[in-house]
């Protein structure tokens, strides 16, 4: 085989090495520039997987590139893997991440606001940036939903346990913005639920459930939903599961919505080679759903969830 005079095997090898080095450098530069995010799941369960999947899809659509690792809280060791941001998904993961001696910024998902505030205080005091995209919807949005669904409602009842997730003054302020008035009753034990509801019945037009381990715990839910139904009292809830159990309507975000919104917020928060931890906020995304069987049985004419959502967004509550 004839070899062109200009070609030298030594020069060819150098050229190839140079190309490879450039490629490696380019790869390394890109890789180093892509923020590293570690998702720490509370469990290897469909709920958390759905959040991770939606978040990953959102980040993969970003041409700037992200390094995304997914671990369960048992697998996660902060010292072993560098990350620009740790995203615990769920309460157990958040507890585990905050227990580590580390200063990597934390942005929690699927954690109710009250629990987040309870846990984040100590970490923040140590100087660790800690934030969250809350799991619960803002109270003002719940009030707008009630107004959109039950335009004649004036007074809304709330049962508050000793460790309720919301403060009465926050409820009152949110209600006022929708021309509603909150009538709250204190519940210290499950046995108080039915008497408290009975005493509220003639004062209120609907009952708003707020996350509360006592009021909406498994033990009290039967009494709560049966008694409100017998009192022909519509119940607004904060989860799809409570809606299915017998609430009249509900406002909530699905795991997919939370994952997608978290991904979109991360993209927005990216600055240069790093990521700025988003401020603690309630989710923008939500669904409104109506338990048609319960509404019909209570002789309530409540429009479909999508119609309610449109009314809420346009501010056209009748």
């Amino acid at each position: 085989m004839a070899i062109p005079p200009s070609y030298s095997p030594r020069r060819g090898g150098l050229f190839a090495a140079w190309i490879a080095a450039c490629l490696l450098l380019a790869w390394m530069t890109g890789a180093l520039a892509a923020p590293a995010v570690t998702l720490v799941l509370s469990e290897d369960a469909p709920l958390y997987a759905a959040v991770a999947r939606a978040l990953r899809a959102e980040l993969e659509a970003d041409r700037r590139g992200w390094q995304l690792r997914v671990r369960t809280w048992r697998e996660y060791r902060s010292a072993e893997e560098h990350a620009d941001l740790v995203v615990p998904v769920g309460l157990r993961a958040l507890q585990s991440v905050l227990a580590e001696r580390d200063n990597t910024p934390v942005w929690a998902l699927l954690v109710p606001r009250a629990s987040f505030e309870q846990l984040a205080g100590k970490a923040s005091a140590r100087g660790r940036p800690v934030s969250a995209l809350y799991l619960d919807q803002p109270l003002s949005r719940h009030m707008r939903m009630l107004k959109a669904a039950l335009p004649r409602a004036r007074q809304v009842g709330v049962l508050l346990g000793p460790e309720s997730s919301v403060r009465p003054e926050a409820l009152r302020a949110a209600a006022e913005s929708s021309q509603l008035k909150i009538v709250s009753a204190r519940v210290d034990a499950i046995e108080d639920l039915v008497p408290a509801l009975t005493s509220l019945r003639n004062e209120i037009d609907a009952l708003l459930l707020v996350p509360d381990p006592l009021v909406v715990g498994r033990g009290g839910l039967h009494a709560l939903l049966l008694h409100t139904y017998q009192l022909t009292l519509p119940v607004a809830a904060y989860s799809a599961q409570l809606l299915e159990a017998g609430a009249t309507l509900a406002l909530f975000a699905t795991p997919e919505q939370i994952g997608a919104e978290a991904g979109a917020r991360l993209r927005e928060a990216r600055g240069g080679n790093g990521v700025v931890v988003p401020a603690p906020e309630h989710p923008q995304s939500y669904q409104v759903a109506v338990n048609r069987n319960v509404a019909v049985s209570l002789e309530l004419r409540i429009p479909a969830g999508e119609t309610l959502r449109l009314r809420m967004e346009r501010g056209t509550e009748p």
Partner: peptide, 23 residues
């Protein structure tokens, strides 16, 4: 009482107002 977890939002709940309970 422990802090509220996501289980309060996503755990299966008993179907209290099932079809036969609704008049």
């Amino acid at each position: 009482l422990d802090p509220l977890s996501e289980a309060e939002f996503f755990a299966d709940q008993p179907l209290v107002l099932s079809a036969s309970r609704l008049a």
